[in-house]
Design a protein around this nucleic acid. Structure first.
Lengths: 184, 184
DNA sequence: GCCATCTTGTACCGATCGGTACAAGATGGT
DNA sequence: ACCATCTTGTACCGATCGGTACAAGATGGC
């Protein structure tokens, strides 16, 4: 399963040929089509669903139910840094959304980013940050992470990813720290 | 020429088939291979060179030779917003760098971003911003633009692109305004 | 008008694409 | 042990891939 994801990540949807997918999974085409009768499209859909659920439990839910907002955003930053391997690993959802092959998965892509932003907003609001700046900051951070991936990949420079992500982290902590502690 | 670029932008390198390229340009395969004997790779190389030169004259050079840094960054923001069509249009250089097909063009991709950042640093330094924060800000802004494209595309929301870019603009102007005006 | 050069369309190449058919091999309930 | 079901590999399908060959058609210097 994660082998499929890695092929799509590295080669994109069009570039991920069945032979690559077959080789990466160690399964023959027969097996692949047994599990995914819908072919490549269904494989991608399954991979996206897998990613979605991983983010939902690891990233989104903790943010949404955070008791300690500062700790929640710190742990998000850590998880994201580990997940994207400091920018060496690409965000499949963001990637697919860029070219026309992603039109098929538009709803899923949109909801992935929408929920990420809304989870972050919710976390900031828990910390007492008013809605309007919270929305701005959340949007900026999620966008900033995607930008960091693009730039780090292009420059082949992991350190750049870490620097940018660190700055997003500071932005979040500053916003939280500025607010009077709320007793939920 | 720009027709080729648009196909690569929209479908990626792998997804841009010769039939698509042929249809987009109105030229037959024979003509295409007459101009680009190296095939698809040479076409992409030419497109990247074209983009590179456009950015060099329109974006990079004005930043590097800016007399009025504030005006220079403002005009950069305007040009970039127009060029990327408020996030509807994708950054081909950033895109290609994400998946493995971009390995062939790694040097060109790297130098595109490196020069963009260095041009921005130079502009900020002209305004009297010390090197260290200038590098941080430049990196953040270039990365932020890429992130804005990814997010706006994913959400199908031009307004998000404009909001994020506006914030990057403010960051640049703030950094410049904080410094005592320098007489070059 | 003539000829060399440049440009174009069409036909074609082997390879690979995504996808199907199907028979042989595992698997597990009884 | 038996049989139905699930799983797998292989062979194969038409379509399209990137790329080539080449002859007919434009073009322009002279």
């Amino acid at each position: 399963m994660s082998a499929l994801a890695e092929v799509f990540r590295e080669h994109g949807y069009e570039g991920a040929s069945l032979s690559l997918l077959s080789k990466a999974t160690g399964l023959g085409k027969g097996s692949l089509y047994n599990f995914f009768p819908g072919g490549k499209e269904e494989m991608m859909e399954a991979v996206l669903a897998d990613i979605d659920s991983w983010f939902a439990t690891t990233i989104f839910a903790p943010l949404e139910q955070a008791q300690d907002p500062a700790a929640a955003v710190t742990s998000m930053i850590e998880d994201v840094t580990a997940y994207f391997r400091s920018g060496r690993r690409v965000c499949l959802v963001g990637c697919i959304g860029l070219n026309s092959s992603g039109a098929t998965f538009a709803i899923r892509i949109r909801s992935y980013f929408a929920r990420w932003i809304s989870a972050l907003v919710q976390c900031l609001e828990t910390a007492g940050v008013p809605t309007s700046p919270a929305e701005q900051i959340a949007e900026e951070v999620v966008s900033g992470i995607q930008g960091a991936i693009v730039l780090a990949r292009a420059l082949g420079d992991d350190a750049a990813f870490l620097r940018i992500i660190h700055r997003q982290h500071s932005t979040l902590l500053d916003a939280i720290a500025r607010m009077p502690p709320q007793s939920a």
